[in-house]
Structure formats: C-alpha cells, structure tokens
Computed example of a mutant assay.
Amino acid sequence: MVEIKTPEQIAKMRVAGLVVAEALKACREAVAPGVSTQDLNDIAAKVIADHGATSNFRADHGGLWFPGVICASVNNEVVHGIPGGRVLQEGDLISIDCGAIVDGWHGDAAISVAVGEVAPEVAMLSSVTEGSMWAGIAQMKKNNRLADVSKAIEGFIRRQPLPPKGKWGITEGYGGHGIGTAMHMEPHVLNYVERGRGKGPKLVPGTVLAIEPMVSLGTPHTTVLEDDWTVVTTDGTWASHWEHSVAVTEQGPLVLTAFDGGKAALAALGVTAAPDPLG
C-alpha cells in the first residue's frame, strides 16, 4: 500500500522538509578540513531541536538503533556512515543524510559536500549524482509510473561522459522510498530499471517519495561494515549520495526538502514546480 496524502498533509510534510533543509544548510556551511563528523552531527541536532522537531534517524530500524541524527558517509562510504571522531581532510567527499519529524510527519534529504578542493573525478561524481536526482524528480508528475523515475535516473547517469578515473557504478540494492507518517514506506524506488519488475504504481497526486541516487566511481556492489550500519563499496571507490523528499501534486512536483520547492532546478529541466503550500 502506498500512503496517499491530502494537500493539508503535504503542507505539514513541507514544514518537516524545511527543518531538514535548514539542518543540511548548517552542516554544509560547517564542512571544512579539521571538522569531525561528530561536529556536524551536533550542528544538525541543534537545528532540529531549535525548530521543535525530532530526529527520525534516532529510532528503531529493524532492531538497530542508529547512533546519530545524521548519516555521515565519507569517500568510499556510500550511506549510513556513523558520525564520530573522524576528522575531515582536504579533498574528502562527505555525504550527509538527515531527517526530521514535525507533528508526526517525516522529512528526509541528503547532500554530498566537497571538503576543500577535490579531484576532478570526485567533483564530477557529485555533480552527476545530483543531476540524476533532479532527472528523477522531474518525472514526479501525475499519471507517470514509478519506473519512469528509475529510468530517468539511470538514463541521466548512463549519458554522462566517464570520469578521468573510474566509471559510474549505480549502487545496487539501495534506493529511494515512500515517506510520510514513517520515514521508510512503500514503494521502494530503484535508481535503475530492473528487468521483470514492471512499471510500478501510478504516481497520483498525494504520492510522496524520497528520491535518492547513490553512485560510485567503480562498482555497484557494496558491503556493510562490522558496525552493522556503514555501507561501503566493495572495491574501495568513492561514492556520492543525494536525496530530496518530493510530493506529486495536481500542479506538478513539490520538492519538500528544498528551500524553493525545487523551482530553480526543475525550471532548468523545463518542468514547473508546484506552488509552495506555505506561501
């Protein structure tokens, strides 16, 4: 079952989404050589608390309790990196994933941030991953199918020139998800087209999905470290992760976790974003 939201409920999710946007903005501005991933976690925690929200990361996930309010995944860590004493170095790439709950409604988003000056292929990696996310978001229109989103994400990545070192590996097994009264809900959103999977459910107004491509400079394969959380590439190549929570509306996509609702990025793709329900 896919949870369908009313316009009033989408407006409530927009509030949670803006808290996530504020937390990620504060983290992005703090990223620098010498800053620890725990420092970033503390910054996000303060923003979430200051807005009267709670973290949806600090919850029971299938018997495991995540120990932070952000996932801080550095270099070859794809997702679910645990914040702690690791200190960022010049040239690193960190993916920061954050979520918040306001009045029972969830928001979830992620960004990749270069630490100082990074190698050309690392900059390309982040840019391609972000671009594929927006390609997928642009397909969040009523009467499209879930497979249209997956196809757009994969298609964008496959069309990009290969980086100076490496290739584009679309992480297998991980992807986006429905979101609303819980952080992870049906349906699962693959970042590639899987044979035999079908077109998936129709995207009707009130559908809300977290669109989150994960791309590496090498293999699509991953493994989980002994901490039971951190997902790394099996070949050690670096990865990037970008994510937004997006609602399908009668007027078009509404990016709940973007300050402008996705207007600028979608306009560049010839798509009109829905009006912001909060004005």
Rank of each mutant, 00 (worst) to 15 (best):
V2I: 12
K5N: 14
I10T: 04
R14I: 11
G17R: 03
L18A: 12
V20L: 08
L24S: 10
C27M: 15
V31W: 02
A32F: 11
P33T: 11
S36A: 11
D39V: 12
D39N: 12
V47G: 10
V47K: 09
I48N: 07
D50P: 06
G52H: 04
G52D: 01
S55F: 03
N56V: 09
N56E: 07
R58T: 15
R58M: 15
D60V: 13
W65T: 15
P67S: 07
A72K: 00
V74G: 06
N75C: 05
N76H: 13
V79A: 15
H80N: 04
G81F: 06
I82G: 01
I82C: 05
G84C: 09
G84H: 12
G85T: 01
R86W: 09
V87M: 10
V87T: 13
Q89F: 04
I94L: 12
D97E: 13
C98F: 01
G99P: 01
V102T: 09
V102Q: 06
D103W: 08
W105T: 07
W105C: 01
A109L: 09
A114E: 15
A114V: 03
A114M: 13
P120T: 15
A123C: 06
A123Q: 08
A123W: 01
L125H: 11
V128F: 09
V128L: 08
T129P: 00
E130L: 07
A135V: 12
I137K: 09
M140G: 11
D148R: 05
V149H: 08
S150A: 15
K151V: 13
I153W: 00
I153N: 01
G155Y: 10
F156G: 07
R158W: 13
R159L: 12
Q160H: 08
K165H: 09
K165W: 05
G169Q: 13
E172Q: 13
Y174L: 14
Y174A: 07
G175L: 06
G176Q: 01
I179R: 00
M183H: 09
P187L: 13
Y192P: 01
R195G: 15
G198C: 01
G198Q: 03
K199I: 13
G200C: 08
K202M: 09
L203R: 02
V204C: 02
P205H: 15
P205L: 14
V208E: 00
V215L: 02
G218R: 02
H221G: 08
T222V: 10
D228R: 15
W229I: 12
T230D: 02
V231M: 04
T233D: 10
D235A: 09
A239F: 10
H241Y: 14
V246T: 14
A247P: 03
A247V: 06
G252E: 05
V255D: 03
L256H: 01
A258Q: 02
D260W: 03
G261V: 12
G261E: 08
A265W: 11
L266H: 11
G270D: 14
G270S: 14
D276V: 10
P277C: 15
P277Q: 14
L278I: 05
